[in-house]
Design a protein around this nucleic acid. Structure first.
Lengths: 254, 254
DNA sequence: CCCCTAAACATATCTAGACATCTACTTGAC
DNA sequence: GTCAAGTAGATGTCTAGATATGTTTAGGGG
């Protein structure tokens, strides 16, 4: 080691920083293969576990992706699904400045895969939100959204089972206009929505269901739909691949 | 090992699953210390690195937190600050001279730490959003928000340097009502906002600045403020500790 | 009683090597 | 020419240590 350089930083962090810098400099582009473990061992004169630890640091950051038997690759962010809370015509006026994160997912809409509809006792939080007694039966509709055959979101919708019995909401195909149109048919048209947004690391089950590589968080969106008289008629819990979505909300200063 | 149970699953995953189950069962509560590496070595008859790998899996999930020299502890989620997209920005609030962050939290206000104001060439995306030529000079205000002396957000605000020259916006203390009240003084009152929300794992620098433990993502909120004539006057990039915040948005059906 | 120090303990880093499993490519048989 | 088997190489898992560094606690000195 030449002179008293920064020995404070662990070897694996310095290797990781060097790789990161090489990626940032464009030496390795998205999808490119990085030098392998054995190559790093030779280049930096470290043991294999140390080289692996460097890769682990980059994986945790979501920068690279290891494919067993193949190598470690710079991750490519195809991304760019833009989920708007409000679809308004005013977009032309207010959109003049352009979006900060130019997501070019124009026209590419995710495909919907229906996972089933069932009746179950409501989770406590859902029952409370819908104004139902604890343990009330709710109708549960589960869907999965795919972009280019890759899952990007899982959505679970909860509705009062008694209210929606015998309607298309209880069927796999909820008909034209979706469940909101059916709720309108019932005189329970949703007119106002509240969305609560969180983010955390996925459970192994979530990572499996969304096909997430390590280093990718999930975004949880919980939307509650209200009728004009202020009653909640639907709770929709969505689990999104954080690397695939940009959420967008617009609102006025009242 | 009794009979031919699931040997397909790696040891470290089974150890991690066992610990996870114990946590879920309440055997270890938030803040409690888990059995240490040497203890796991004895209990499961594995090497140190294998026990460490089990902990690493739980850390990546954000479930536990390792403190060097002390042990591995079940993470305690101090619960979310609620960040509302609408009420928070109500005209009455900042028009009356109150801080927009007074609406945050459950009565507990985050403290604001001012990190400085400066003039710099605008990043390309910011210049485009503000409708300024590439490389135009913008005023950059950086602040950090702390809850119980722990940082939870870093905010960087960009404004046209020429427009805001000589105003309180160029000073550390932007005066009563904050920079939006000052923009209103200039006849550039923001009346509409767009927020774009993403999430990803933090860079090491971000993790350091926010004091994040591994397994905690960041939420990126980019707010653009528009005047009545549709011009963007401010771009505010916020980096949030994902475990500290719940974002909330309300809107009407289109 | 407080402060400082030392020891015990815990995690963090690192090494060296073994076997497992998957991938991509090459080779050979049909 | 096509398909299958074989093989080299890559990451994944696991062991068994050594050394480094931070934390906690117990003890001793002031």
């Amino acid at each position: 080691m030449p002179s008293g350089a920064q020995k404070r930083q662990p070897k694996y962090q310095r290797i990781a920083a060097a790789l990161k810098e090489a990626i940032a400099a464009g030496q390795y582009g998205p999808g490119d293969r990085l030098p392998g473990e054995s190559e790093l061992m030779g280049t930096y004169g470290v043991a294999r576990m140390t080289a692996r630890q460097a890769f682990a640091a980059l994986q945790a950051e979501g920068l690279v992706e290891a494919r067993k038997g193949a190598g470690v690759f710079v991750r490519e962010f195809k991304v760019g699904l833009r989920r708007r809370g409000i679809q308004r015509l005013a977009v032309e006026v207010w959109g003049a400045g352009g979006s900060i994160w130019a997501a070019d997912g124009h026209g590419r809409d995710p495909q919907v895969e229906f996972l089933g509809v069932s009746e179950k006792p409501a989770p406590a939080a859902v029952a409370a939100a819908l104004g139902l007694p604890a343990g009330a039966i709710v109708r549960v509709r589960r869907r999965r959204f795919l972009l280019d055959a890759k899952p990007v979101m899982v959505a679970t919708s909860y509705l009062d089972a008694a209210l929606t019995a015998g309607t298309a909401i209880a069927e796999p195909d909820s008909g034209p206009g979706g469940i909101y149109a059916r709720l309108a048919d019932l005189g329970r048209k949703p007119v106002r929505f509240r969305e609560e947004v969180r983010s955390r690391m996925p459970t192994p089950e979530e990572a499996d269901g969304l096909g997430l590589t390590s280093g990718t968080p999930v975004v949880l969106v919980c939307r509650t739909a209200f009728t004009a008289d202020g009653h909640a008629v639907e709770v929709n819990e969505m689990t999104l691949d954080a690397s695939a979505y940009v959420l967008e909300y617009e609102f006025d200063a009242p």
